[in-house]
Amino acid sequence: MTGKTARQCSSWALHSLLAINLVMMAGCSGKNSTVRYSASSIGSSCYAKALPTSGEGGLAWGDTLDMARQKSMNNCIRYAGRSGGTPDTCQVVLAECRN
């Protein structure tokens, strides 16, 4: 008798957990998606990208165009050196500010 009761209880608990899970998932799926802001879009409005002739380049954000260019050059030199590229050939290939 106790084996049958324990089985019924565990079955009831399993079904309850499953029902709760489904209700929670259904509640979340009906919500509209919210806008997600990256850290770069909240603060700085200018960005620049510097690339070497070989190796990895660098992308950076800054408050001014000059700051973004300098940061991207520093990143390019660092990443190109780490990736076996040519850090002394880094050049800014893209730089602009958003409105």
Rank of each mutant, 00 (worst) to 15 (best):
I20R: 03
S11M: 07
Q8R: 10
M73K: 03
A39G: 06
D63K: 10
D66W: 07
C28S: 12
A48T: 05
G84N: 10
H15F: 03
T53N: 04
M24W: 11
D88T: 15
D63P: 10
D63F: 08
A6N: 11
S40M: 05
N32V: 03
T34P: 00
P52L: 01
R36Q: 02
C97N: 12
C46N: 01
L18K: 08
Y79F: 15
L22F: 03
T89W: 14
S29N: 00
R69E: 15
R78Y: 11
C97R: 11
A50M: 03
L59Q: 02
G58V: 01
S29H: 02
S38N: 05
R7G: 00
I20N: 01
R98W: 12
C9K: 05
D66H: 11
S38P: 00
A50R: 04
A26C: 06
K4R: 12
S44E: 09
A39F: 00
A60E: 09
P87G: 12
V92S: 11
V93G: 14
R7Y: 02
S72T: 11
V92L: 13
C46H: 01
R78K: 15
D66L: 04
V93A: 13
C46G: 01
N32Q: 11
A39M: 02
I42R: 05
V23P: 01
L17R: 06
P52G: 04
T86M: 12
M25K: 11
S16R: 14
G3H: 15
G30C: 05
N32R: 04
R36H: 02
A80Y: 06
R82N: 09
M67H: 04
P52K: 01
A60C: 01
L22V: 09
V23F: 03
T64Y: 06
V23W: 03
S41H: 07
G27H: 04
S72K: 03
Y37R: 04
T34E: 04
M67S: 13
C90G: 15
L18N: 05
Y79S: 13
Y79T: 10
T86C: 04
G3F: 08
T2I: 07
Q70L: 10
L17M: 13
A48W: 05
G81Q: 11
A13P: 00
A19Y: 06
M1A: 13
T5Q: 14
T34G: 00
S41T: 09
A6G: 07
G27A: 06
G3W: 14
N75M: 14
S40T: 09
I42D: 02
W61P: 00
S41F: 02
S83C: 09
L17W: 10
S41L: 05
T5K: 15
T64H: 06
C9A: 10
I77F: 09
M24T: 13
